[in-house]
């Protein structure tokens, strides 16, 4: 009956969202008078989930699962759910979780609600608050199936420490060749760079930067803030930046603690995708730019003057506060 939470890891290390979904699962477990059980794949330091209230971890050790495979992972989670008699499964909003959750939903005949931003409104019936219309609104959604899947939005619930002793058990799902019919042949990923999905801070550039050659100062700003870099849609359409950096309604969603927009006008499609960020800073030379209406802090000025100064100031600040 416990709440089952899929805790993601990469090269054995838990991702930050693993601790966030674990925190969420513990909150649901408390509301329902039960406990939180995690399922992990080839993870080390499974005990660390205890800090967020997980009291049991089903850890899978299996070399064929070193690379994420949506079908095989979903099947393993479904088997764990069955074994535990789970009624609620919690996943994150990462690309991988959003890939496997619908597969899992079909396997468990479970209603699935993604983009959930808060602990359930109620548990009987189970009702959750989620974003809709690309962050322009919220829906309160009831799930009526026997088994239910909740997808938690990035950075919405946060990490909640809640010390428990996590008992780690080995779990061996039954998988066959048929579960690997989508085969990974190559992964192209820059090592050591913060991704937009994981970043606490995102620095984003728009058409106001005039050309690909001017991104040096954006990278520097991102560097001193430990931020991921992003861009507006036309910037990726023109090939100034890779498509993977395009954020907004038709690109990646951003839910960072701090979003810094440089030379971006703030079109409704852009705002929709980034408005879930907590603090927004806008640097734009046009005081009428619509983004100022959606921002917390702004500087009206030429990016080519403001950004280098900001980089210098932040370096100074870091040196003082180190």
């Amino acid at each position: 009956m416990s709440i089952l939470v899929y805790t993601e890891s990469e090269n054995g290390k838990f991702k930050k969202n693993a601790f966030e979904v674990a925190s969420y699962a513990k909150a649901v477990a408390d509301q329902m008078g039960t406990s939180a059980t995690a399922i992990s794949f080839n993870a080390s330091e499974n005990e660390s989930l205890g800090a967020y209230g997980v009291s049991k971890v089903l850890n899978i050790t299996n070399d064929t699962l070193n690379t994420f495979n949506a079908e095989a992972y979903a099947k393993a989670i479904a088997q764990a759910a069955e074994k535990e008699g789970t009624k609620i499964v919690v996943v994150s909003s990462s690309a991988n979780s959003k890939f496997l959750a619908p597969i899992l939903a079909a396997k468990l005949k479970a209603g699935y609600v993604p983009n959930v931003v808060a602990a359930p409104d109620s548990t009987e019936p189970l009702k959750v608050k989620r974003t809709a219309f690309s962050n322009k609104g919220f829906a309160h959604t009831e799930i009526s199936t026997d088994i239910k899947i909740i997808g938690v939005s990035n950075n919405a619930f946060g990490l909640k420490e809640n010390q428990a002793d996590a008992a780690v058990e080995d779990f061996s799902p039954e998988l066959g060749d048929g579960d690997f019919s989508v085969k990974s042949v190559n992964i192209d990923k820059v090592a050591g760079k913060v991704t937009i999905a994981d970043a606490e801070v995102v620095v984003s550039g728009g058409r106001g930067l005039k050309g690909a050659e001017n991104w040096g100062m954006i990278e520097e700003l991102a560097d001193v803030l430990g931020a991921a870099t992003a861009c507006s849609k036309p910037v990726s359409d023109m090939g100034w930046r890779p498509h993977g950096e395009h954020v907004g309604q038709t690109g990646k969603p951003v839910a960072a603690n701090l979003y810094v927009a440089v030379g971006i006008s703030g079109a409704i499609q852009h705002l929709a995708g980034v408005s879930a960020s907590k603090t927004k800073v806008v640097i734009n030379n046009d005081p009428e730019a619509p983004f100022f209406k959606a921002a917390d802090y702004g500087i009206v000025g030429d990016a080519f003057e403001v950004v280098p100064k900001l980089v210098e100031k932040l370096k100074e600040f870091k040196a003082q506060n180190a």
Binding site: A105, A110, G111, Y112, V113, K127, A132, N135, K136, G137, F138, A139, H140, T141, E142, I143, S144, T145, S275, V282, F292, K293, A294, A295, D296, Y297, G298, I299, V300
Partner: peptide, 19 residues
């Protein structure tokens, strides 16, 4: 499997602080 029972909108944003 699911039903949206109600909707709401994000709270209106406060004034931007220009510096």
């Amino acid at each position: 499997a699911t039903q949206d029972v109600s909707f709401d909108k994000p709270a209106p944003k406060g004034q931007v602080k220009l510096v």
